[in-house]
């Protein structure tokens, strides 16, 4: 479904590349998690798929279509996206926000007047139900909702256009552990229902193990692990998050500290807290 052909991306000339010759193939209907510390290139990789980032070299194919400036709009219609900061429009209602995911297919006058067709509204309601949001929420402003509820609205928005691919850029990084689990479960359920391919970047190794079909681990712009979640071992996790020299040690390297709120390894303290949260 998504093919990365030796993608390299340098944000500034001569700087270290954010992506360094990444080649991957994500199959249709796969739930693929990209794992890695901050700055490892996860977001950049995801954003090359819908043309928010243009690779310096290499190319990306989505369903056989190369992502080029010319084809970007066409590709974007088939790709939904979920963001870490939810990126909902604050002063609009839940319904308006969900419908906004289908903007390219809505005639301009409807957008200007914010009058949605009955079928589109029905579809939005169904999606909101499928992410466990009550119909009473429909006309409420998104800014009144909690973080978890907002991200569920964002999931509904990503799926309303019936996408083949959904990109989830750290969808649970700003949520608490139990909410994270709920949101990921809903995302996975929605993907299974619609048969969409999901490319999801995550910090949390345990969540990645639990929800993915496949884990791709990245470090400094390179893929360091690619395989089924049960093949991801403790040593590999250490290799991803810590300096290779300290593979077994607990001391993180100076510039590769896992981001705050992340779970570098399913360690005891963190695991206990997670268990308590559940």
């Amino acid at each position: 479904m998504i093919v990365f052909q030796s993608i390299t991306k340098r944000y500034t000339k001569g700087a270290l590349p954010a992506l360094d010759g990444v080649s991957l193939e994500v199959h249709a209907k796969q739930f693929c998690v990209v794992l890695g510390p901050s700055g490892s290139g996860k977001s950049t990789l995801l954003r090359t798929v819908n043309g928010l980032v243009r690779p310096t070299s290499g190319r990306v194919l989505v369903g056989g279509t190369p992502v080029l400036p010319k084809t970007t709009k066409k590709v974007r219609r088939r790709v939904g996206m979920i963001h870490q900061q939810f990126n909902l429009v604050p002063r609009l209602s839940v319904l308006d926000n969900v419908v906004a995911g289908a903007l390219p297919t809505i005639p301009l006058w409807r957008v200007v007047a914010r009058q949605w067709s009955a079928s589109l509204e029905r579809r939005a309601c169904e999606l909101l139900e499928s992410v466990n949001l009550k119909p009473a929420y429909l006309q409420r402003r998104v800014s009144e909702l909690s973080g978890g509820e907002q991200q569920r609205v964002a999931i509904a928005r990503a799926f309303i256009a019936g996408p083949d691919v959904v990109l989830a850029d750290e969808p649970v990084a700003s949520l608490d552990p139990s909410t994270s689990r709920t949101v990921l479960a809903l995302l996975r359920a929605a993907a299974e229902q619609t048969g969409a391919t999901v490319l999801c970047s995550l910090h949390q190794v345990d969540l990645a193990r639990e929800f993915s079909d496949r884990i791709v681990a990245m470090r400094a712009g390179e893929v360091v692990f690619d395989g089924a979640p049960d093949r991801l071992e403790r040593d590999t996790v250490s290799t991803i998050y810590f300096d290779r020299g300290h593979a077994s040690g607990a001391e993180p390297g100076p510039e590769t500290k896992p981001a705050t709120g992340a779970t570098p390894a399913p360690d005891t303290a963190q695991a206990q807290r997670m268990a308590a949260a559940r």
């Binding site: 928010l52 066409k74 790709v79 909902l88 429009v89 604050p90």
Partner: peptide, 24 residues
Amino acid sequence: GPQEALRSTGANRLKVLRMAALPQ
């Protein structure tokens, strides 16, 4: 953020302006 989110659905800039920027 919201503008980028709607732009990444493939909508043209007039629609993004109406739905993401104008309400703000």
